[in-house]
Design a protein around this nucleic acid. Structure first.
Lengths: 153, 153
DNA sequence: TCTGAAATTGAGAAGCAATCGCAAAACAGG
DNA sequence: CCTGTTTTGCGATTGCTTCTCAATTTCAGA
């Protein structure tokens, strides 16, 4: 939670800069949410944050979390991840290399993968269609080795 | 709506086969929903279907639509598409080549693209991770030429 | 340090897509 | 025409997310 001091500092700075640029304030609630979001090194959803905050006796309302997470996304610190689940999940992107996901439909395990060739082909596709990409969503759903071993097709 | 008679017949057959295989009945409601889903050649959502049915004086309850669309997905006739919108969209896949989407964040336009090289690289990625793919979600979000021309970044 | 405009928060209400429960209806096979 | 099963429709319900608005906090300038 307190390791990687340098990058953690810059996360705070980056968020602060984003907020300031847009005439918003860096409140203590937003700081708490930022810290909590980066305390885990896994994907998380709103309820995970809420639970974690309650465990640490920090009180931030659900509404504020729902309001703050999109700010963290826009500031380039988080990214939305789409399970087949209903609700939105998030993961860190700041300080992490870009990657996409293999998601197991049985156990929910998430395997990260990155493929530069795919990325460059993607850029080419966009160029062909005169399309200016902003972000993408690339998830392969299926079954991991363990679950296939257990007979899940 | 009545063109492509051959493929339309096989859609019905394919759905009928799927239902029978799973001990389900091919009711007239399910047939109406199937026909309606394939009447459009665009992406659609539940409300689109409802509106269309009402316009044609066909009465199928919302619940039945919600129950039937997943069956059409499982039978291999439809595919879910994820806008950045909240609710689920669907598109035909039966009789169409596989493709993915470029989605304009401003006007919502959807451009289809298919890239065999990306597909094969994807298979390779799965092999490397001993992952058995079932389906994927690959959407590139950004701005189309027209919207960039109009100053949308 | 004090002041006031502007932004933010919290708590609950509201929205809304999707799901559920159950009685009535439709089916299929005998 | 019975009989057991599946399906439908309706309304109610769920569960995530957003909204409303009064109260609070923040920050720049006095």
């Amino acid at each position: 939670m307190k390791n990687e001091r340098q990058t953690e500092e810059s996360q705070v700075e980056k968020f602060a800069r984003y907020l300031q640029t847009n005439g918003m304030k860096f409140t203590k609630e937003r700081r708490i949410i930022l810290e909590s979001a980066f305390a885990t090194h896994r994907h998380f959803e709103v309820d995970d944050l809420l639970f974690q905050l309650r465990s640490n006796n920090k009180r931030v309302s659900k509404a504020t979390i729902y309001r703050t997470l999109p700010l963290l996304v826009r500031s380039g610190l988080l990214r939305e991840v789409h399970d087949d689940d209903k609700h939105t999940h998030y993961e860190h992107i700041y300080g992490h290399e870009h990657h996409d996901h293999l998601i197991c439909l049985n156990c929910g395990k998430i395997i990260e993968f990155g493929n530069p060739i795919i990325e460059s082909l993607q850029d080419e596709v966009c160029k062909q269609h005169e399309f200016t990409p902003v972000k993408h969503r690339y998830e392969i759903l299926g079954y991991c080795r363990e679950c296939v071993g257990k007979g899940h097709p």
